[in-house]
Computed example of a mutant assay.
Amino acid sequence: MGLFDTIKQILGVNAEVDATSAANPDDLFEMTSAYITMEANLDYVPAGDAALCFSGVDSTRFAQAVEEVEAILAAGEEETGTVAQLHEDDYGYRWIVLEDETFEDLVTTIHFAVRTLEDHGFGSRLLAAVFAFEKPSENHTVYWIYSFRRGSYYPFVPESGQERDSQTEFKLQSVLDGELTLEDDQAYWYPLWPDTPGSHPWE
């Protein structure tokens, strides 16, 4: 995973020290109305992909919690068609990667996974939820990232050569202000670079 530096640094330890508010998993549901505004005002639609990133711990209780999450994901695939894959990146961080054309199902599945980890006492291991959007008229993907250490969303719009489209990020911030719990401090708009240009951050 080509993640700017390492996820532990950018979304973990540093953000935990500087955290201004505790994350509320119900903030995830803000996306179910925000995406409608994005489509109406900016022509962005859900790309059908989302992911949850969390750090692991070597314990039986954690393994049991992950097994319960996997059971929830399997049930979700049967009921809603949400396809889920779990994998570990090169830094040892866990990703739940979801695919579903129904955006609300993506949000609900991530929320269930988050609540399950919290119920087992591993809420502190949660790092980020990432939602992908695209503009049909362009080959352009944008992301909304929810930082569990900051309890807020921020936009990420990658371009080729590990450059960011700051203008589009600011436009997204402006349009979604009032609908999402936004990160006001742009110093915490951490990029999540993929290994391969044009792919998702979790790939």
Results as ranks from 00 to 15, higher is better:
Trp144Lys: 06
Asp58Lys: 10
Pro158Leu: 01
Thr196Met: 03
Val142Pro: 11
Tyr146Pro: 13
Thr32Tyr: 05
Thr20Cys: 02
Arg61Asn: 14
Ala187Gln: 08
Glu179Met: 13
Ser174Gly: 15
Thr6Lys: 11
Ala74His: 01
Tyr35Cys: 12
Glu16Pro: 03
Pro158Ser: 00
Trp95Met: 12
His200Leu: 06
Asp185Asn: 15
Arg164Ser: 02
Ala84Cys: 08
Trp189Ala: 07
Ala129Ile: 03
Tyr153Arg: 10
Met1Tyr: 08
Ser147Asn: 09
Leu172Asn: 04
Val57Gln: 14
Val17His: 13
Gln167Ile: 11
Asp184Met: 00
Leu176Cys: 11
Glu179Asp: 15
Asp105Arg: 15
Leu182Ala: 05
Glu101Gly: 07
Ser160Met: 05
Ser55Asn: 01
Phe4Glu: 06
Phe112Gly: 08
Tyr153Ile: 06
Phe170Val: 10
Pro201Ala: 00
Val97Glu: 14
Pro197Asn: 03
Gly48Pro: 13
Phe148Ser: 10
Gly12Pro: 08
Gln85Ala: 12
Gly121Thr: 03
Thr60His: 05
Glu118Ile: 15
Ser147Ile: 07
Leu3Tyr: 09
Pro197Met: 03
Glu68Ile: 08
Ile145Thr: 14
Ile36Glu: 12
Asp195Thr: 12
Glu118Asn: 14
Thr168Asp: 07
Glu39Lys: 15
Pro191Met: 04
Gly161Pro: 13
Asp195Ala: 11
Gln167Lys: 08
Arg149Glu: 06
Val66Ala: 04
Cys53Lys: 09
Phe4Ala: 11
Thr108Leu: 01
Leu98Ile: 04
Phe29Pro: 07
Leu42Phe: 03
Ile72Gly: 01
Gly56Met: 09
Ala40Val: 05
Ala84Asp: 08
Gly56Leu: 13
Leu86Cys: 06
Asp100Tyr: 00
Gly92Ala: 07
Trp189Ile: 09
Phe122Asp: 09
Phe133Arg: 06
Ala84Arg: 02
Ala50Gly: 14
Ala40Tyr: 02
Glu159Tyr: 01
Tyr143Arg: 06
Asn24Phe: 05
Gly178Phe: 01
Ser124Val: 10
Ser152His: 07
Asn24Trp: 05
Ile145Gln: 13
Ala23Pro: 13
Pro201Arg: 01
Ile145Phe: 06
Leu106Thr: 11
Val45Pro: 10
His200Arg: 12
Cys53Pro: 00
Leu98Thr: 05
Asn139Val: 07
Gln85Phe: 05
Arg125His: 14
Asp58Trp: 02
Trp202Gln: 11
Val17Cys: 01
Ser137Lys: 14
Asp5Ser: 13
Arg61Pro: 10
Pro194Asp: 06
Leu86Lys: 08
Thr6Ser: 13
Glu163Gly: 12
Ala75Gly: 05
Pro191Asn: 00
Ala47Gln: 05
Thr60Val: 10
Asp18Ala: 15
Ala22Ile: 02
Pro158Tyr: 04
Glu183Leu: 01
His111Asp: 04
Pro191Tyr: 00
Asp58Gly: 07
Pro155Gly: 09
Tyr146Phe: 12
Tyr44Ile: 10
Glu16Gly: 13
Phe170Glu: 15
Val157Ser: 05
Tyr188Cys: 06
Glu159Val: 08
Val97Cys: 06
Glu183Met: 04
Ile72Glu: 09
Asp90Phe: 09
Ala63Ser: 14
Gly56Phe: 05
Glu203Cys: 04
Leu3Phe: 07
Val142Met: 09
Gly123Cys: 08
